[in-house]
Write a protein that binds this DNA or RNA. Sequence first.
DNA 1: CCGATTTGACCAAA
DNA 2: TTTGGTCAAATCGG
Length: 284
Amino acid sequence: MNTSHEKAVQAILYGHSCAKRLKLQLDHPVADARSVSNYDLTKSIVHCFSDAISIFSDKSKSEDDVFSDLSSRDYPPPLHQRSHSKKRKNNSTNSSENWRHDSPDPNYYDGFLWRKYGQKTIKQSKHQRSYYRCSYNIDYACGAKKHEQKIKDNPPVYRTTYFGHHTCRINQNQDAGFTTIGDPVDNLENSRMIRFGQDLDQETIGLSVSVKDEKGIIKEETMDQCRGITGNDKDCQTVIKENHQSSPSGSYTPSSSGSEIDMFDSDLLVEDLDLWDRYDLYDF
DNA sequence: CCGATTTGACCAAA
DNA sequence: TTTGGTCAAATCGG
């Protein structure tokens, strides 16, 4: 069992290698259907850095706890048919909640278009929780939903919890640069975000965690509150709003500029590609 | 004008 | 009774 520090470093290194590979593909586009798409690479980079940050910032958990979470992802998560009733879900026992993602970036783009339908103040939580459902909920009877809530202030961590399954299959691929891939679940099952020629569990690098105990969110945040740090949840909403204004066809523009990639040393491109082969050995 | 968001009310599980 | 999840009217904004 590696230490959390090592895990985080591995995640960063892998993100670095993804960035390099992305640059390589941008510089030398190839029409190879087997290659990983630029979008997937971008998503992988975001995942890696987000989770590395989460690891470093998650002081409320022991190292083992952190990686117990990270390694306990359920693939595939259980299917969940949306209930139209208002009754509360039993978050701690049933399997309706199936995906969780922590990100320092409230503008994290998961490839889908969401419509906000509610916001609640959660007891013992100083941040409000926002409720979203798939924008194609009506058109395609898509039952996918998600919650989003700020759980830490410094550094900021936004937790998105996904429920249900995307049935909309909105694969608007008009945009040549990006393709709308399935939800995190579908992505794993169909698109195979990253290919290592290994088993699914090993080749997947989405570091989101399966949800086991919603109370943990409150617990973490309560500990954060003890630090006496204040935050502004409105920021989250604002950014999300901006995110929603982007085209549903997936015209996502990564927040980081392309110039940052220039910082990478092209000479390392080949040797660092080895990380792709080694990353499946990491115990995320 | 129309689609998206906000927000108070409502409902049901805990 | 409390609380989380959802509804839907009001409001906002392009």
